[in-house]
Write a protein that binds this DNA or RNA. Structure first.
Ligand SMILES: [Mn+2]
Ligand SMILES: [Mn+2]
Ligand SMILES: [Zn+2]
Ligand SMILES: [Zn+2]
Lengths: 123, 123
DNA sequence: TAATCAAATGCAACTTAGTTGTGACTTAGA
DNA sequence: TCTAAGTCACAACTAAGTTGCATTTGATTA
């Protein structure tokens, strides 16, 4: 287990378990948001989906993990970082993290999801 | 039935039915996107949800209706218009249509969903 | 207007991502 | 090592949306 993850647990007063550490390990290595199935495939530990979702809920509460819904009725998870946008391609279903300048928007924006056709899939 | 809706059916070669006209009537009056339950409440005609979703799918194909997922695992529908963003407040769950200037984004953007805290709910 | 038939509808059964209850098992700390 | 609080696996559940199929509807033609 990496020091970074150990520190996250301590800082947020979250009890250490192998399940939790395994989830965060996967998210740490990922370069874009992943859904449950994708994380499951990459995890070194087998756990029930109830365990997975309860732990993710805990991470969310603590602000460690950020989640959003794509357009496939699935939650996508990533380690929290500065607010940035996600581009979801309707054709290849690839999710890309991007920086956008929104100009001024009333209210506090916490998540931005763009949907459309990515440049690879564009005619 | 309004002329506007009659014209939509003709232009898109969609068979007229009372169910279809009733759905579009509701969307035409709405000032923001609505989900199935919300549309059902407002509709003058009672129809099965299978009928509702099949008709919505037809409208989508024709480009009459645009749909997106909020963060509540529900689809939201509105009549198609120029691409604009939707702000979803995590506290009051209000969905507002807004115009944003994204700057330049690679690929073709078809839907923009912002999530956060609206100015009314903001401390 | 009446007959025709492809398309639309209602109903019931299904799918599936995510949630919840519960008894057994871990973990952190005394 | 002992203990209590927290976490886990398992199974049953929830709910938005989908699908199959027999019946009905509405645009077209006679
Ligand atoms: Mn991201
Ligand atoms: Mn809108
Ligand atoms: Zn693509
Ligand atoms: Zn609000």
């Amino acid at each position: 287990m990496s020091e970074q993850i150990k520190t996250l647990f301590e800082e947020h007063d979250i009890k250490f378990t192998t399940a939790r550490s395994s989830i965060l390990e996967v998210l740490k290595e990922a370069h874009h948001p992943l859904n449950y199935e994708q994380i499951k495939e990459k995890m070194s530990v087998v756990m029930d989906k109830a365990t997975f979702y309860r732990n993710i809920a805990k991470f969310e509460e603590s602000g460690i993990v950020h989640k959003f819904e794509a357009d496939d009725r699935k939650w996508y998870f990533e380690l929290s970082s500065t607010t940035h946008a996600h581009f979801i391609c309707e054709h290849c279903h690839q999710i890309t993290c991007i920086d956008v300048d929104l100009g001024k928007v009333e209210g506090e924006v916490k998540s931005i999801v763009l949907k459309g056709t990515c440049k690879e899939c564009h005619v």
